[in-house]
Every structure is written in structure tokens, then in C-alpha cells.
Design a protein around this nucleic acid. Structure first.
Lengths: 341, 341
DNA sequence: TTGAAAGCGATACCAC
DNA sequence: GTGGTATCGCTTTCAA
């Protein structure tokens, strides 16, 4: 049986209320009494019960706001399903999750949504921010008001957010370089395809891949990176063009979206299973391609975790007074093949 | 705000106690009242609060027993750390975890430990059983007494355990075959090294690997499997012998322990980085070898998860009356390279 | 067959 | 400064 507040109170010869005040640093307690209680709590290894605390808090439900952008993509849909899982869990734990999804990239809507959340009484926010000056300013303002913010999927450099939950894109890019090299032991020609120039995740994945290949795997020759703007049509075009010049293209690395287009082009050219394809995000579409052999390796970001974790961290912070242990919660870099889907 | 028992009681015009009896199927309720309450609960989408329930149960702490074998191996040490994490979490949730570790394989001690747990009042058990007749009989007996059992790491076929938590060794073996094939696109000679003949996990990993290679990757030639009894000395010997006959050995697949011996032999022969090594379990030793390039791919079983999950499932079952949703909780097949450690 | 009441651990509020 | 007390949602006697 764990030690309870009541036991501390008994041992100290005071009431539970006094112990509570001390443990929450609310003051209004005689210094000597306070010291004694602090000492006692340590000695008896007191740890507050999340059960009791949660129960009390469930009276006036704590509200946690989540705003998620880009929800039109299959990947983000999975993130949202993680958020909904969190909503369910939080409900049982006596808290309420307010969710707003923004289907595309819209900084203005993001800001409006943040304001809306605050108006509805959100006591903490989880966001997938866009990195614009407006949003940076807004987030700073929110944090200054004492509302904790967690970023997920995309970070917001330079803001005092509690922490970031998402992929370590640099390590992911390196991992892909390693996979490409081990699949092409004899060396070969590789085409990197990225999504948007300036999209921080895409950029990081791309340059980490390029840097690692250049530094560690000289047998691999890199073509200049091409940008497909996350469009399958464009990525297909890019690969087809490349195949004209290099019919024996050995590998394609896709750091953003456009995976299907790449697969289509290679399949049309009869290069499926010959040209190694490495890409990101375990969407249904991509899972299918893994099984069909169109994709060789895929980096899964743990989408549901990205949706779930931020809300839980905010709960722990707000209700249990337990701040996140780290500033970066990197989700696992999960390597998927057709065999471990 | 979620629907509470009280609200149902109010709506049904009865007391909370009556609703409670109905929802727990304890009987002693007039059938018509019971039907009305059931209907109401469904309509109002009542879901019991884990908070309230946990709090009550924390009075007479529910005891959950965990018995873990083979704890002398580095892998099992990580499993134990997962168990200890669960112990901590359960404590906060008002339950108590009794842990007994058995360093080696000892069916008799296992049985004694189970009895001990029951005597100490364990209301549920998580076990890494050995597959002997004695243990099967004991587990059956325990389950017949109404004490739920969960197996982890090793399953116990034919017992009515609640569920199994652990690796899907067959899919893992297949995954390794796929990795070996993609690393040796031109084909090559591969040596499978297993631990014990008759050890179900080792056997499954081995035969799934062999079957997949034979069926899917004809370019890979398989040497007959060798058994090293989990000994680095023996595995080193095996590899050295093989290298004499086949100095250009292209791959080694290690389904049990003995990884270090394999790496040592290859390193001595100057084959590190040339012969592809694929093995299991992210121990410190193995992590080091991944970084040094002695191991190319490694399958991580999610050791901590294997220790943590069973206790949580028992808690959910005993305290929250939520039985496991599946009979097999396969832990993720995590592919590790030096880049995504 | 039913209900009233106590209590799990922590918090909030109101008296003193 | 401090203590008493109601409360959160649920389970568990005990009494009717």
C-alpha cells in the first residue's frame, strides 16, 4: 500500500489540507511546519495518487485543445485517429479534448483556431504549427499567457513549447541511406525525390540522406534531387524522365509524398523489384505497394503515437503536475518491409 | 462530462447500488428493473470510470504475480526492467505487483514460485512458462481455480491462458529472410546458426527463415543449419569452420544467442562488412556490434514492452473488468540498423 | 430485492 | 495559518 496524504498528515500532526498546501507550494503555512512536512513526505516516499487527483479534477473537466493541420493526407488521417484515441482515454480520466482539424496548410485558420480553443477554455494546446512569423508570434503570446503548448509532427523552432513529439528526420534520412547502401552493395545510381523545397521535414530527410551517402557510401552515385510538390503525377513524370537517360536506375529515395507516382513509373518501365524504392509513411496505399513489391523499405513514423502522445503529455502536465521529461519526444524510426507490416 | 452511475440511477429511479448490481451481473435484481437499467446504460452510452473504480480497489490492493525465467540473459534483464516499470505504474493505480525472477531454466522452481504467488494472494499471474508437462498441468490447475494467467516471451500451447504477449517468431524469421535477400541481391551463400534444437522460438525463427528463402529467394543458397547452444565459443567455432570451406561466405543468420561469437569469427577473418549478419535482440553488446558494423540488421523484440504489457493487461482484466482484446499480443518486429538504434 | 452510507485519495472552499 | 467538510465515480458492506 502506497503512502497517502492522510498518513503524512497523521505523522505530522496536521490536517490533510495543510499537507496539500505545502506540497503545492501554496504558502500560508508556518515555515517550520512546512519544513517538517516536506521532510516527512520525502522520508515516507510520498507519491500522489493519479487516481485520487484525476477523480477530483474530473469534476470541472480540464480541457485540452488539439489543432491539427494537413488533415487531408492519408498520414495525417492516421495521426487524427491517434488523437481520437487520446480523446477517449482522456474522457475516462476525467478530461476533455477539443479537436480542430484543418485540412490544408492555412496559417490564418490556425491562428483563428487557437483563439477559439482558448475561448472555449482550453488549458493546454497541442499543435502542428506552420513555421510562419504570424504563428510564431501567436504561440509565444499563448505561452506567455501561461497556456502550455506542445508541438507535434512539425516543430516550431524558437518557441518555448513544452516539447516536440515527432520524427527525428535527420536520423531517419541517415537510416534510409544505410538501407539503400545495403540493398545496393555493388553500388549504383540513386535518384532522390523530395516534396517541397523549404518544407523542413522534407529538407532534413533529404539532406541527411545525401550527406550520409556522400560521406559513407561512395559506391552510390546520387542524381540531383528532384521536387515533386507531393504530387504523384509530377513524381511519375520525374522518374520517367530519369529512366530515359538512365534506364538502369538502381534506387529512388522519396523523402516526401509522391510515392505512388514513383511506383507507377517504375512498374510501367518494368523496373519493379529491380530499382530499390525507399520512402516514408505507412499509409494504406503504401502498405499495398510494400506487399506488391513496389516499395522495398518504408519508414513508419508511428502516426497514431504522434496524435496520442501530445494530449497525454498535456494531461500529465495539467492534471498530474508532471512536466514532460524531455524536450524532444522522437517517435521510433520503424523500418517496414513487406514482412513486418 | 461523461455519464456516471449516479445519472443512470437517477434516470432509472433506483439507487446506484442497484445499477451496480445489474452492470456486474450480480443478480438479486428484479428482471424488469434489470432490463430497464441495461437499456438505459446502453442508450446513455455509459462507460465506467477507471478512476473511480481504481480508487475503490486500491483499498484492498489487488495483487498481480509475475514470474520470469531465464533472467540471466541480457535480453531478459531488459524484460525485467519493463516489469519494474509496470510495478511502479500499478502502484500508483492502487495495485501491487509481486515479482519472482528465476535466473535459469528451472521448471520445478517455476511451479514452486506459482504456488508461492497464490499463497501471497496473487489474483492473476503473468508467466514465462517452460513447456513441460508439469508446468502445463500446474497452469491448468491455476486457471481452473479462477486465477487468470497471461504468458509472455514464451507461450504455453494448449492452456487456457488469457493471452500471449511476445514476438511472432515466424513473421520475424520471414522478415530476416527478406532482409538477407535484399542485402544479397546478386545471390549468395548463407549460414543459418540456431541456438537449441527444440527451443520453440529458435526453431520457428529458423524454419520460417529457411522456408521463405527456399520459396522466394532461389538466388540464396542455404548451408545446413548449425546449433551453437547459445554459446559464443561454439558459434565462433562454427563460423570459422564454415569459412575454411567457404571463404566467401555471404551471410550468417543467427536465430538464437551466440551473436558475439559469430562477429568475432568474421572480424578475425576480415569478413566484417562483407558477410551480412542478421540476428536478434537489442542487447548492449549487440548494439555495440551494430555500431561497429559487425551486425547489419537486428530484430528487436521490444523487451520492455514484453515485461510491461502483461501486468497491465492483468490489471485491466482484474480491476477494470476489461479482458484482453486479442489472444495474441505480438510485439512489433523492430528492424534495427546502426542508424536507428 | 433494494437502498443508505462509508470510504478510496486528493482537492477546493469556507470557517475559524 | 489551519482544519473541517463536501466532492469526484465507484464499490462494498449492512440493514431493511
Amino acid at each position: 500500500m502506497a503512502v497517502t496524504l492522510k498518513e503524512i498528515a497523521g505523522a505530522a500532526g496536521v490536517s490533510r489540507a495543510t499537507v496539500d498546501r505545502v506540497l503545492h507550494g501554496r504558502g500560508h503555512v508556518k515555515p517550520e511546519v512546512e519544513a517538517r512536512i516536506r521532510e516527512l513526505a520525502r522520508e515516507m516516499r510520498y507519491q500522489p495518487s493519479p487516481l485520487g487527483r484525476g477523480l477530483v479534477k474530473s469534476a470541472r473537466a480540464t480541457k485540452i485543445g488539439v489543432v491539427c493541420q494537413f488533415t487531408e493526407t492519408p498520414f495525417m488521417k492516421m495521426v487524427v485517429s491517434g488523437i481520437e484515441q487520446a480523446r477517449e482515454d482522456l474522457r475516462l480520466m476525467g478530461a476533455e479534448l477539443l479537436l480542430d482539424t484543418i485540412d490544408s496548410y492555412a496559417p490564418a485558420r490556425m491562428i483563428a483556431s487557437i483563439d477559439e480553443m482558448l475561448k472555449e477554455g482550453a488549458q493546454g494546446l497541442a499543435l502542428t504549427p506552420g513555421n510562419t512569423a504570424d504563428i510564431r508570434a501567436k504561440v509565444r503570446e499563448v505561452i506567455a499567457q501561461g497556456v502550455p503548448v506542445i508541438t507535434f509532427n512539425t516543430d516550431l523552432p524558437g518557441a518555448e513549447r513544452l516539447c516536440y513529439v515527432g520524427l527525428d528526420n535527420i536520423r531517419a534520412g541517415r537510416t534510409c541511406a544505410g538501407l539503400m547502401a545495403s540493398s545496393l552493395r555493388g553500388g549504383g545510381l540513386v535518384l532522390p525525390v523530395s516534396g517541397y523545397r523549404g518544407h523542413s521535414a522534407h529538407d532534413q530527410r533529404l539532406s541527411a540522406f545525401q550527406d550520409t551517402v556522400r560521406a559513407t557510401f561512395p559506391a552510390l552515385r546520387l542524381l540531383p534531387a528532384a521536387y515533386c510538390h507531393d504530387s504523384d503525377r509530377v513524381s511519375e513524370e520525374i522518374v520517367l524522365e530519369t529512366l530515359k537517360k538512365h534506364p538502369d536506375l538502381n534506387g529512388v529515395y522519396v523523402s516526401g509524398n509522391g510515392q505512388s507516382g514513383v511506383c507507377r513509373a517504375l512498374r510501367g518501365a518494368g523496373r519493379t523489384g529491380k530499382t530499390v524504392v525507399i520512402c516514408y509513411d505507412l499509409t494504406e496505399q503504401n502498405a499495398l505497394e510494400l506487399e506488391r513489391g513496389g516499395i522495398d523499405f518504408l519508414i513508419d513514423q508511428g502516426a497514431r503515437e504522434q496524435g496520442y502522445r501530445p494530449a497525454r503529455l498535456l494531461y500529465d502536465y495539467l492534471i498530474l503536475n508532471t512536466p514532460p521529461k524531455r524536450t524532444f519526444y522522437y517517435t521510433d524510426i520503424l523500418i517496414k518491409t513487406r514482412y513486418n507490416l
